[in-house]
């Protein structure tokens, strides 16, 4: 059994409706987690509030463990799931740009929308900034085209790259996640507490 879309359970149009509902739910829970406030998000970078890290890693390991167990039980065919192709250098540079923007603006793209629709002015400004950034990117694309595809590695995954079983990779990531939870809380204790 593959993902519903690939199995042809619903058409592209229905897919859009489902995407809209999923997106709305995603936004709702981001807001409920407090991710509509740039203050809370920015505290992450001062090690005072590691909620973002914890929430994101929870999402990652939940999805990972869930999918792998489903695959183990034969409920889902993982080979049918779309894998984002890797462009190593492009993604390292892109990640750094995103990180700097995140630290300066206090939002990442998704949460800025959440912030904007809940009426936060900084969220609206951030969103406008992101959009003008897209225009700049589009206009300057020929200049950075080389970078855009730098380090192309195709649909590579960690188990494939290192040639170890996906179970072992999953276990290592779980260990890393637990380490990060513990480490995050330690950092929170050390640097924590809201300051004026």
């Amino acid at each position: 059994m593959g993902p519903f879309y690939k199995m042809g359970f619903f058409s592209e149009q229905t897919g859009f409706v489902i995407a809209l509902l999923t997106g709305a739910a995603f936004g709702f829970w981001l807001e409920r987690a407090g991710f509509g406030q740039s203050r809370k998000l920015a505290l992450q970078f001062y090690f005072r509030d590691m909620t973002v890290l914890k929430v994101m890693f929870t999402a990652i390991i939940t999805a990972m463990v869930g999918l792998l167990y489903f695959s183990l039980f034969g409920w889902i065919d993982l080979s049918m799931i779309y894998i984002n192709p890797t462009f190593l250098w492009a993604q390292i540079v892109g990640g750094l740009v995103l990180g700097v923007g995140f630290a300066i603006g206090g939002y990442c793209p998704g949460t800025s929308v959440v912030g904007a629709v809940t009426g936060r002015i900084d969220g609206i400004v951030f969103l406008l900034g992101a959009m003008s950034g897209m225009i700049v990117f589009g206009e300057f694309f020929p200049l950075i085209e080389k970078l855009y595809t730098a380090g192309s590695m195709g649909d590579i995954t960690l188990p494939k790259y290192f040639n170890i079983s996906s179970g072992i990779v999953a276990f290592i990531i779980l260990l890393a996640a637990v380490g990060m939870f513990v480490g995050g809380e330690w950092l929170e204790k050390k640097f924590g507490g809201e300051e004026a």
Binding site: L68, Y69, L72, P159, S165, S166, G167, I168, A170, F171
Partner: peptide, 8 residues
């Protein structure tokens, strides 16, 4: 369990 399972 995952690490020792025949996932692949």
């Amino acid at each position: 369990i995952l690490a020792f399972s025949p996932l692949d």
